[in-house]
């Protein structure tokens, strides 16, 4: 019962913060709204009984990634944008219509398929422990874990290489 109230409150906040990312004219306030949506999403993970993922969401997203965004934003001279949306009225209307159609399709599919929620006996009641998750991570998903490490190394090298190049495709 209390979970239902919490879900609706968090969902309302999440949609509000996401719309703030879309609508705010200053990129700094967009990023603050994104931080808010990350924190609300972390609370929602706690509601879904995966506290480890909630903590990782707070540390990695709201901590690391958003600090990266704000630090990069510090290097630019950003003002309030006068015209925040690209394109004309007709193309924007087409884009909005397509996104709305997408949301409608997914939502209708979710509401049609009632079979999974009626089997509520399968709903997990115990909290996912870090130990069982670590066993999955280091036994079943070991190769993926190592590949992810290689990807992170490549990304570190690539970011340094990208920040060092001077030229571009355009002639100066």
């Amino acid at each position: 019962m209390i979970t239902g109230y919490l879900f609706y409150m968090l969902a309302f906040l999440l949609i509000l913060f996401s719309l703030g990312v879309l609508m705010h004219s200053s990129p700094l306030f967009s990023s603050l709204n994104l931080v808010g949506s990350m924190i609300v999403l972390s609370a929602m993970y706690y509601l879904l009984q995966v506290p480890f993922i909630a903590a990782v969401q707070l540390i990695v997203y709201a901590g690391a990634v958003m600090v990266l965004f704000v630090m990069v934003m510090m290097m630019f001279d950003l003002k309030h944008e006068i015209k925040i949306f690209s394109g004309g009225f007709i193309s924007n209307a087409i884009k909005c219509g397509l996104a709305g159609f997408f949301a409608f399709t997914i939502g209708a599919t979710a509401f049609m398929s009632t079979e999974m929620i009626s089997g509520s006996a399968k709903v997990k009641t115990e909290v996912l422990s870090v130990k069982s998750m670590a066993q999955l991570l280091f036994k079943d998903y070991l190769i993926e874990f190592e590949v992810l490490g290689v990807i992170l190394l490549l990304v570190a090298v690539g970011a340094v290489a990208l920040s060092r190049i001077k030229g571009g495709t355009h002639a100066s």
């Binding site: 996401s18 990312v21 997408f102 997914i106």
Partner: peptide, 13 residues
């Protein structure tokens, strides 16, 4: 389906 609906809305935004 509540969670899936919310996820679809956030994805569309």
């Amino acid at each position: 389906n509540h969670y899936l609906f919310l996820s679809a809305i956030i994805f569309s935004i």
